[in-house]
């Protein structure tokens, strides 16, 4: 019962702040809403016994990624409002997303109404979702994807530095 209360609490917070992300006029408000959404998602991860992933979500996302985004927002000093301009293609896309979301809704709801019920939550073993069990998987069976991820991160760091650095002296126009 308590877990149901926590689920509804975190789920409603996640939905509320998710709408805040896309509806806020000020990008800074969007960023803070996204931080709140991610914290609510971390709470749901804890509900699902994915403790290590919940802490990673808080540390990596709200601690590093969102700080980076907020830093860029304040660096660029964006306070002008953007007019929302709906072209035909964009209206089409929005309709498509609406239909897509509605179809998932109908599918999942009729699934639970017609009696096809997914199994109940089983009691999780002690080590499920812990850092130790995740590391045991990550460093044995999934060693290759793990190393590829490290290569990807290195490439991303180099790419970000190359893209965002100031232009070279010879590239700069003479004033």
């Amino acid at each position: 019962m308590l877990s149901a209360i926590f689920f509804w609490m975190f789920a409603s917070a996640a939905c509320f702040f998710a709408f805040g992300v896309i509806l806020a006029r000020n990008p800074m408000h969007s960023a803070v809403s996204l931080v709140a959404t991610l914290i609510a998602l971390a709470g749901l991860f804890l509900q699902l016994h994915a403790e290590f992933l919940a802490w990673i979500l808080i540390i990596v996302y709200t601690g590093a990624v969102m700080v980076l985004i907020i830093f860029v927002i304040s660096l660029l000093n964006l306070h002008r409002e953007e007019p929302i301009n709906l072209t035909l293609a964009r209206r089409f896309g929005i309709t498509f997303v609406g239909i897509f979301g509605f179809m998932i809704f109908v599918y999942l709801f009729t699934d639970s109404l017609t009696g096809f019920v997914y199994p109940k939550k089983l009691p999780a073993p002690e080590e499920f979702g812990s850092a130790a069990s995740l590391a045991a998987d990550l460093f044995t069976r999934y060693l290759l994807p793990f190393e590829l991820a490290s290569i990807l991160l290195t490439a991303a760091v180099i790419g970000a530095v190359v893209i965002a650095r100031k232009p070279c002296e010879e590239e700069e126009p003479k004033e």
Binding site: A14, A18, G101, I104, F105, L108
Partner: peptide, 10 residues
Amino acid sequence: ILSAVLFSVG
């Protein structure tokens, strides 16, 4: 359902 809602909002 929550996941679908968040994805659609994004």
